[in-house]
């Protein structure tokens, strides 16, 4: 038996391929080779399904346990984990849901998954030290105009077709938000970020999300001033005051 062939065959079979397991595994009175292999296949899928359930709890509640298991099984077979870092697994689940025929009747499901993935990445991203903004005045006007800013490394911006942030809130135990009162069919601009051990979600105006997108693109202050004109001071102070901008960088 070649160990490489064995391992390659096993992994392929874990994620959907058919192999002759009798070639490798002993059958006995209590379990056949196929049943014994099935325990491992079930375990591998169980670990990954649980990871997706932990990452996408509201999606799971929206579609129910049975459908969630069905869709995650398909997702796992089509997107087996390639990374040794478990936190990387599950990316792309929202796109998968968006194209999964049987899930299309729940139109807001993919957007909910996108939100839950952003919460997952916020949890698993660096919570960096903020810049000392009190020192901004120490720089010349020329230096300030050439300066750019950064959102927290934990931050992501979401533009969704549905009000999935309220939907997510309504699915939390500690929240008494009435699902019936949510106007789901409304565009959403959202910032998701983490400070210390808490994840925050903030709905933004169109102008605010445009501004934060521009910040994400490392636009210098001079370009931000040009684009956002008389609104810049308000946008910048709101972003700084709420921790949406974490640091500044000299050119």
């Amino acid at each position: 038996m070649n160990l490489k062939d064995l391992q390659n065959d096993f992994v392929d079979a874990f994620f959907g391929a058919e192999i002759d397991v009798d070639k490798y595994i002993i059958s006995d009175d209590s379990l056949t080779a196929k049943q014994r292999f099935g325990i491992y296949k079930g375990s591998v899928h169980g670990v990954l399904t649980q990871a997706l359930a932990d990452m996408y709890p509201v999606c799971k509640e929206l579609v129910g346990d049975k459908f969630f298991d069905h869709v995650t099984s398909k997702f796992i077979n089509q997107n087996p984990p390639r990374s040794a870092f478990f936190a990387d697994f599950g990316e792309g689940f929202s796109d998968f849901l968006a194209n999964f025929e049987a899930a299309k009747s729940v139109a807001y499901l993919a957007d909910t998954a996108r939100l839950e993935w952003l919460r997952h990445t916020a949890w698993n991203s660096k919570n960096q030290e903020p810049s000392d903004f009190t020192t901004l005045g120490n720089y010349s006007e020329e230096q300030q105009l050439a300066m750019s800013f950064s959102l927290p490394e934990t931050a992501s911006l979401l533009q969704a077709d549905y009000q999935v942030e309220q939907l997510w809130q309504a699915h939390q135990e500690a929240n008494d938000l009435d699902l019936e009162k949510i106007d789901l069919f409304k565009h959403l601009n959202l910032l998701v970020w983490r400070t210390d051990y808490t994840i925050y979600m903030q709905e933004l105006s169109t102008q605010q999300i445009d501004f934060l997108h521009a910040v994400q693109q490392n636009m210098p202050l001079s370009a931000l001033a040009e684009q956002f004109t008389e609104h810049l001071a308000d946008l910048l102070s709101t972003a700084l005051g709420n921790g949406w901008i974490r640091s500044f960088h000299l050119a």
């Binding site: 096993f10 992994v11 994620f15 491992y40 375990s43 670990v47 990954l48 984990p81 390639r82 040794a84």
Partner: peptide, 14 residues
Amino acid sequence: SAHGYNTHDLIPLP
């Protein structure tokens, strides 16, 4: 892990 994939599970050896 094998074949470029990671099972994140403990698979035994011969």
